[in-house]
Design a protein around this nucleic acid. Structure first.
Length: 291
DNA sequence: ACTGTACCCTGTAGGC
DNA sequence: TGCCTACAGGGTACAG
């Protein structure tokens, strides 16, 4: 679920609860999420301090004292919730532990705050990896550039699109090219750039990989949609919430996503938003003004 | 090397 | 009400 803006909002929400704080106790309520949780997970976190909370693409990285990094991914339905003060310890009664369904991990920090990880579908995961050589870790090394940094240029996109037959939308959502764009923001960025999601990626570049006007249009489209979404606190569709439980509001600013059959919002266009399936996922676009 | 499909898992919405 | 299907913002493994 969460794409770059949502993960960034979560990061900002978790920062005051985790950064500079020490794990007092960690509850683990099942052995695995998408992957097995780390060996001796709770023991290895206890006593460690979170030096820094970083985002890379859709990943969260908590740099810990002692040279390890807690790598976290929210999958589709992962959610962190910060509890101020003390969370009552898990109570047992005749029916077993009393806690919310799908609360899988709880971080209790020294000083009283705690953070709960809830994930119904369990597509998310947590790993403990060495800080040294972090960028070469198998889960991170293939990641493309950060779209909000200086590296996102028409030249970069064109260079990677050169010769590619894949459609523009799956190209944009490919984490190896740009890290952090997912289904929603790829659709919305293409709408802003007035580009059809079905056009071949190669058509944003010349034969030599030189960017054309389409590549030039994509850069501000991608950047602005992500910035606007972060400003709005992300998009809340089904599961997504901020770490404090608040909802993002960017879903109200969608121009095409989940608007099948509704009219295009571009002034004077008069087209109708269409839904197609690409790479097994829904794509929404206006066939009239996106070419 | 690419490209598309199936799959992981649970919850929800809609048709009948 | 219940049953069934399709679908959901993630990524990966595999077949062709």
């Amino acid at each position: 679920m969460p794409e770059l803006p949502e993960v960034e909002i979560v990061r900002r929400g978790l920062e005051p609860a985790l950064q500079g704080k020490v794990f007092a106790r960690v509850e683990q309520h099942r052995p695995d999420l998408r992957f097995p949780l780390p060996e001796d997970f709770t023991a290895r976190l206890r006593g460690r301090k979170v030096e820094r909370l970083q985002r890379r693409g859709k990943y969260l990285l908590a740099h810990l004292s002692g040279g390890e990094v807690l790598l976290m991914h929210l999958g589709m339905t992962g959610r962190f919730t910060v509890h101020g003060g003390r969370l009552p310890p898990t109570i047992k009664d005749n029916d077993g532990p009393v806690r919310a369904t799908h609360d899988h991990v709880v971080f209790h920090m020294q000083g009283g705050g705690s953070v709960t990880y809830n994930d119904p579908r369990r597509f998310g995961f947590m790993m403990l990896i060495a800080e040294q050589g972090l960028d070469e870790h198998p889960l991170l090394h293939h990641l493309g550039i950060e779209p909000l940094g200086k590296a996102l240029t028409p030249e970069y996109l064109a260079q990677h699109a050169r010769g590619k037959k894949v459609s523009l939308k799956p190209f944009l959502a490919d984490q190896r090219i740009v890290a952090g764009l997912g289904n929603i923001y790829a659709c919305e960025a293409l709408y802003r750039a007035r580009l059809s999601p079905t056009r071949a990626a190669a058509t944003i570049a010349g034969k030599t990989g030189k960017p054309n006007e389409r590549a030039a249009a994509l850069v501000p489209a991608v950047r602005s949609v992500l910035e606007d979404a972060i400003r709005a606190g992300g998009s809340s569709l089904r599961d997504y919430r901020h770490a404090d439980g608040e909802l993002g509001t960017f879903q109200h600013a969608f121009c095409v996503y989940d608007r099948e059959g509704e009219s295009c919002l571009r002034k004077g266009c008069g087209g109708t938003v269409r839904r197609i399936v690409q790479s097994g996922r829904s794509t929404f676009y206006c066939p009239k003004c996106q070419r």
